[in-house]
């Protein structure tokens, strides 16, 4: 289910008329020569800052976020919420509805898309979301903003089972961790960090290496992590992973420019470089590689994954990622010290 959009039907709507307008769109779609089945595996609330796009074009309304690609991979009722904090309770100011159609003519399926623009205080935001989510399917919130800048409100989190975000967007890891603190402490929603997925090859490689080297040998060893520019959050996630496993680690530091360049040349663009005693590991976009003395080099390929692939994979996962939660807890603790 990851084909391109075959057709887009959409119309401007009013908040009160969204259900009726969606029903009318389905009737229009249903009158076509090709039958279109509705596909809906979850509610996906896409939270984003208000854009200047208005009225005319659905692609513009959801521009900048790969909504269509995610819907193709994990058909959901997509609710794009453009929200800015308002002073007084008031109805959403604008909305649009659409149906994205996918699949070959013999097996067409359609995905519902609702775009709502609102400016109201947080308590009244919930009443907007409750109106549009379906209760018989899981609800995920995809926070497309930098959480170190703006964190999801309590109200928003009460409607979802899962919060999908990307710590790679964090401009400030410390503030990002501070924003995560209440979520980590209260376990209110399952957390899904797209950046965390990028660590998977490194975690596998090191876990394997630790098995070979008897993991107790890591305890008390000096661990240093350095990261490429814009990869501080990734480094902190790695830090949290080690800490949550009882392995001490110094605070991550940016790679020295010369070292970064050398690493890029050598490893095809290293994102992280790690020293664990006399063991060296790097994570690049292509692989995680571990070099230990007295053992052959070890490499784990990093699968190329688009943002849409990553979001869809997280949406399909209904179990909480306890390892991520533990890593986040360790990061939060470190920053609160």
């Amino acid at each position: 289910m990851d084909g391109a959009v075959a057709d887009r039907s959409w119309r401007a709507s009013t908040p009160e008329a969204i259900d009726a307008d969606l029903a009318a769109l389905w009737r229009d779609v249903g009158r076509g020569e090709t039958s279109v089945a509705r596909a809906v595996m979850s509610n996906l609330i896409v939270f984003r800052s208000p854009t200047s796009a208005a009225g005319g074009d659905m692609a513009a309304l959801v521009g900048g976020v790969p909504v269509e690609e995610v819907a193709a991979r994990h058909p959901s009722r997509v609710i794009v919420l453009e929200h800015c904090h308002g002073e007084a309770p008031r109805a959403p100011s604008a909305s649009a509805v659409g149906i994205l159609t996918f699949g070959p003519p013999t097996a067409r399926y359609g995905v519902e898309l609702i775009v709502v623009r609102s400016a109201c205080p947080e308590p009244s935001l919930l009443s907007i979301l409750r109106r549009f989510v379906r209760g018989d399917i899981p609800t995920s919130i995809w926070w497309t903003e930098d959480m170190s800048d703006a964190a999801p409100s309590d109200a928003l989190l009460t409607v979802g089972r899962q919060l999908v975000y990307d710590s790679r967007r964090w401009r400030d890891a410390r503030r990002g961790a501070a924003a995560m603190a209440p979520l980590v402490r209260h376990h209110r929603v399952d957390l899904a960090d797209l950046n965390w997925r990028r660590l998977a090859p490194l975690r596998r490689a090191l876990t394997h290496a630790r098995g070979q080297l008897k993991s107790d040998a890591w305890r008390g060893v000096d661990v240093r992590v350095s990261h490429a520019a814009d990869e501080a959050a990734l480094a902190w996630l790695f830090f949290g992973w080690l800490r949550s496993d009882g392995v001490g680690c110094a605070d991550p530091a940016p790679m020295a420019e010369a070292a970064a360049t050398a690493a890029r040349d050598r490893e095809g663009g290293a994102l992280l470089a790690i020293e664990i005693g006399d063991m060296h590991a790097t994570l690049s976009l292509r692989s995680a590689d571990v070099v230990c003395p007295d053992a052959p080099p070890l490499g784990v390929a990093a699968a190329a994954e688009s943002e849409a692939d990553a979001v869809a994979a997280e949406l399909r996962s209904l179990a909480p990622d306890r390892t991520l939660a533990a890593a986040l807890e360790a990061i939060v603790e470190r920053f609160e010290r």
Binding site: W26, D28, V29, G30, R38, G110
Partner: peptide, 29 residues
């Protein structure tokens, strides 16, 4: 709602929907 295996190497289960929807099935109001 039917629990179904998510494609992939692991046994991961997701509740999928068999959904009959008047609007898209029969068209018209």
């Amino acid at each position: 709602g039917i629990n179904s295996k998510v494609p992939g190497p692991h046994v991961q289960i997701y509740p999928v929907k068999m959904d009959f929807h008047y609007g898209s099935t029969f068209g018209g109001s």
